Computed example of a mutant assay.
Amino acid sequence: MTGAADVIGPGALILVVGPSGAGKDTLIDAARARLEGHPRIRFARRLVTRPAGAGEAHGTLSPEEFAALRPRFALSWDAHGLSYALGEEVAQWLLSGETVIANGSRATLPLARARFSRLLVVHVTAPPEIRARRLAARGREAEGDILERLSRAPALDTVPDMEIENVGTPEDGGRRLADFIARVTA
């Protein structure tokens, strides 16, 4: 594993970011299906201090396990009262020159920019009414928590490499994301 001061590359890390309920995981899943079997593309599985739930397949760690492993993660951050990470395998894939796609956080972009030699940002958005329906359908949060998530709108500190307004079908958005990933990897 690389040390904290090392810049990780030469592979590209594509962080898919955007507000809760924009459909990031859905688009990542659709892109994964389209790119299945590509030898140089990897989809990272996030580690989260939350049990698995609807709409997100992630690895689950207790807060104690997370804290013990945090120095080994390629990237980690805290949001919504939880801790999130990309595992150390992400660094290994990037060191091997592979392209890695991950659901990330807008707040962690400055750290990611310093940590990875080739970072690309895909910003996924959707109108608030669509996001509200999606968040309610997940069944993970109470109405007040959903309203709080909808009220947050942290700005990106950079111009994204791709913007997807996720209002069409998952297949349409997933195709756009997959095409972008294929271009980056070519």
Rank of each mutant, 00 (worst) to 15 (best):
G53F: 02
P39V: 03
A5T: 10
A186S: 12
G81Y: 13
A74V: 00
T169R: 07
V159L: 14
G139P: 03
S76F: 00
A178Y: 14
I101L: 13
G18Q: 03
G168A: 15
R149H: 02
H123I: 01
L147F: 10
V121R: 14
V100R: 09
R175M: 10
I164D: 10
E129N: 12
G97K: 11
E163R: 15
R149M: 01
H38F: 06
E165R: 13
I41Y: 10
E89R: 09
W77M: 05
G55L: 01
K24M: 04
G59M: 05
A137Y: 06
E148R: 15
P10M: 04
P51C: 02
L47R: 12
Y84W: 05
P39N: 04
R140V: 00
I181C: 09
R113N: 09
G144M: 03
P154F: 04
R175V: 01
I164E: 12
L61S: 06
G9L: 01
P110Q: 08
L75I: 04
E129G: 06
R70L: 08
N103T: 02
T60M: 12
L35F: 01
D25M: 02
F180I: 01
A12D: 11
L27I: 12
E56A: 03
D172A: 10
A112F: 02
R118C: 09
